[in-house]
Computed example of a mutant assay.
Amino acid sequence: MDDDDLPRRRDDVLTALIKQPLDPLSVDELGERIEILEAEIERVKAHRSSATSQKAAAEALFRKG
């Protein structure tokens, strides 16, 4: 079973993040939040790319043996 198949925990940080009201935030705070989230997206994409490469290398190694 993949981790993607598992239900999210109720105290998951992402769930809490998307439930936060945006109305109290100023335009500047919203801009800062967008910048932080975009940086986090890039970090996650880089990690996914690295994990995919490592998985492919491991699969290739075990196919040879």
Rank of each mutant, 00 (worst) to 15 (best):
I18A: 03
A51K: 10
E29G: 04
Q54E: 14
A58Y: 08
A58V: 12
P7E: 07
L61K: 13
L37G: 00
S49K: 14
K45Q: 14
A56G: 01
P21G: 03
T15Y: 03
L17C: 05
E42R: 11
I36Q: 08
E59Q: 15
R33S: 04
G65F: 03
G65H: 05
D11A: 07
R63E: 15
L17R: 06
D5S: 15
Q20A: 05
I34A: 12
I34L: 14
S50F: 11
L14Q: 06
H47E: 15
P7M: 02
D4C: 09
A58C: 03
Q54M: 09
I36W: 06
S50Y: 09
Q54W: 00
S49N: 10
A60F: 07
M1D: 04
D28L: 10
T15E: 09
R10V: 04
E42S: 11
S49V: 02
V13L: 09
T52Q: 11
A60V: 00
R8P: 05
L6G: 01
Q20S: 01
E59A: 07
E35N: 10
I36L: 08
A56D: 15
I41D: 15
L37Y: 13
E42G: 00
E59C: 04
R33N: 01
E32L: 08
L17P: 03
T52C: 00
K19L: 09
L37M: 13
S49W: 06
A46G: 12
E59T: 07
R63M: 10
F62E: 14
A39Y: 07
R48L: 14
P7I: 05
V27S: 08
S53F: 06
A56R: 04
R8S: 06
K45V: 14
I34N: 03
E29V: 01
Q54R: 10
L61S: 13
E35D: 14
R33L: 13
G65W: 05
V27K: 01
E42F: 12
I41R: 13
L22R: 09
E59H: 08
A57G: 07
E40A: 13
A58S: 08
R10I: 05
L22N: 02
R8C: 01
A51L: 15
K64P: 00
A16D: 03
R63Q: 14
A46L: 14
L6S: 08
K55V: 07
P24I: 02
R63L: 13
V44K: 07
P24M: 03
E42D: 12
H47P: 00
A60Q: 11
P7Q: 02
R63F: 06
D23C: 01
I18F: 09
I41A: 13
A60Y: 07
A57E: 15
R43G: 08
S49M: 06
E59S: 07
V44T: 07
L17M: 11
D11K: 01
A46M: 11
E29N: 00
P21D: 15
E42W: 10
M1R: 11
H47F: 04
K55Q: 11
T52P: 05
G31T: 11
R10C: 05
S26M: 04
K55P: 02
E32I: 02
Q54I: 04
R9L: 12
I36P: 03
A16C: 02
P7G: 04
F62K: 10
K64R: 14
I41L: 15
R43M: 10
Q54S: 10
L22H: 01
P7H: 01
M1I: 11
D12R: 09
A56C: 06
D3W: 12
I18G: 02
R8E: 03
E32R: 13
P7S: 04
D11L: 02
D4H: 08
